[in-house]
């Protein structure tokens, strides 16, 4: 069942095309990663999902309802954490958390709220003006996770948190998932996305350029190989799918396209392999490949 569905979404600000036909779908109980460089359109997409911006064309539906028309009904079932949390300087953190929870109109589990404050090591008695970026983010995170939601929309929620707090956050996401909630997580921290997400979408210049499960995306990428053989392998650098070839300490070091791996191993094994190390592609490799594509090869488009 789809909790969130976005089809051919476009948004223009004056002459600037911010989104150009974005498609997204998040299923129930799924943690969905949304990654892309700065200015790619992540926050614009999220603000359309929240009914803050009106799409130029295409549609965005949450729980089968239109994000713009039925904003209020949708918002009863979601919790949102922005990346840049702006708060009222003369209210305390505790006051803001209560205010947010009250406005969500959900039943608040006081012990859960207290537990979250303790886990996040958060002092609710200070005025918001005295909070650091990380502490302001904690306000939004505690208000989001202190009550259940069917969908959590998190826009770079951990950009100001320390690694210890990041772990608390990941725990919150696990627990939400266990209860059957869905999560849309936009993030720059790729290790976090890798650890938490079932599926990801990569957005660049307002277009989704890749989406699917992490396993399926890995097929599209390259694997790092380090190989030593008894005999010299002829023409290794000109075999199909081989990239960045070099020889270090009598080892062949290169990358190979995932779909050419089988061919490559067959070819090399004829020459007596004595050592073979392979490193799986990280999301970062994947991301970097697309990202670099936009700076070097993007000029022709």
């Amino acid at each position: 069942m789809k909790v969130l569905e976005v089809k051919q979404l476009t948004k223009t600000f004056g002459k600037v095309q911010a989104l150009d036909g974005v498609d997204l779908a998040v299923n129930k109980g799924e943690v969905y990663g949304f990654i892309g460089p700065n200015g790619a359109g992540k926050s614009t997409t999220i603000r359309i999902l929240l009914g803050l911006l009106k799409p130029t064309s295409g549609f965005a539906r949450l729980f089968g309802k239109d994000a713009w028309e039925d904003a209020v009904a949708i918002h009863k079932r979601i919790a949102y954490v922005p990346g840049d949390v702006n708060l009222w300087p003369n209210l305390t953190g505790g006051e803001v958390i209560d205010l947010f929870l009250k406005m969500r109109g959900v039943r608040v589990d006081q012990s859960r709220k207290a537990r979250l404050m303790e886990q996040f090591d958060f002092d609710p008695t200070k005025k918001c003006r005295t909070y650091s970026k990380g502490n302001r983010q904690k306000v939004a995170l505690i208000a989001a996770f202190a009550a259940d939601a069917d969908l959590y929309i998190l826009d770079e929620p951990t950009s100001g948190l320390d690694p210890l707090m990041e772990r608390v956050f990941q725990q919150c996401v696990y627990e939400a998932k266990k209860k059957g909630s869905s999560v849309l997580l936009s993030s720059h921290i790729l290790s976090e996305v890798e650890r938490l997400c079932d599926r990801v979408a990569i957005i660049r210049q307002g277009e989704i350029i890749e989406s699917g499960s992490l396993a399926s995306l890995r097929h599209l990428t390259r694997i790092q190989l380090t190989i030593a053989t008894k005999e010299v392998v002829p023409d290794l650098d000109s075999q199909p799918g081989v990239h960045d070839f070099k020889i270090e300490n009598q080892h062949y070091v290169f990358q190979v396209d995932a779909d050419q791996l089988d061919e490559m191993v067959r070819y090399v094994s004829q020459y007596g392999v004595v050592n073979l190390e392979s490193a799986p592609p990280t999301l970062e490799d994947l991301f970097m490949r697309h990202y670099q594509g936009s700076t070097s090869g993007g000029g022709g488009q």
Partner: peptide, 9 residues
């Protein structure tokens, strides 16, 4: 936007 992201019209 904090308020509008909640069920507040």
């Amino acid at each position: 936007e904090h308020l509008l992201a909640k069920p507040v019209s």
